[in-house]
Amino acid sequence: MLIARRSPDGFRIIDSFSRIVRLGEGLNESGALSSAAMDRVIAALSVCADKMDRRSVKASRCVATQACRIASNGPELMTRIKAETGLDFDIITAEEEARLSVLGCLDLMDESFETALVVDIGGGSTELSWVDLAVWRERGGYASGGRPPVRTWASAPVGVVTLAERFPETAETADWYAAMRDFAAAQLKTPKGAKKLRKHFRDGRAHLVGTSGTITSVAGVHLELPRYERAKVDGLWMSADETLAACNRLSAQDFKGRSAEPVIGTERADLVLAGCAILEAVMAAWPAERLRVGDRGLREGLLMNLMRKPRRRRGGRRARSTAQRKAAE
Rank of each mutant, 00 (worst) to 15 (best):
L223V: 09
G145D: 11
G10A: 13
F167A: 05
P168A: 02
G275T: 07
M52H: 07
R312S: 12
A285M: 15
G10F: 13
D120L: 00
I121F: 00
P168L: 12
P191R: 03
F89I: 06
D295A: 11
S18P: 02
R292W: 01
R202K: 10
H222F: 06
D120A: 06
L100N: 03
E127L: 03
T243A: 01
L27V: 07
K189C: 08
Y177R: 08
I13Q: 03
V135T: 15
S259R: 05
W136D: 02
E95S: 14
L279S: 06
T126I: 08
L163G: 08
G10H: 07
M109W: 01
S217E: 08
C48D: 11
T65G: 00
G235H: 07
L244Q: 11
A186G: 02
D39C: 13
W286H: 14
P191F: 02
P310G: 05
I215P: 09
G220C: 05
E76G: 09
E127D: 13
S259V: 10
E138Y: 04
V150W: 05
F11G: 06
P226N: 08
L23F: 04
R181S: 06
A231Y: 04
I42P: 02
W286A: 05
A194K: 05
L298R: 09
R151L: 15
R198A: 09
G26N: 01
I70G: 07
E29D: 15
P8R: 11
D295C: 04
R311A: 15
D234F: 10
R205V: 10
A37T: 11
F113A: 13
S144L: 14
M304F: 14
A319S: 14
E329P: 00
A37Y: 09
T126C: 11
I264E: 00
G220E: 04
V135L: 15
K196T: 14
R230Q: 12
L100S: 09
A269G: 00
M307A: 13
S35G: 12
G123C: 08
I278A: 01
L303G: 04
P75T: 09
G220F: 08
A59V: 15
A44G: 11
R147Q: 14
G210D: 06
I42M: 12
I278L: 01
G10P: 09
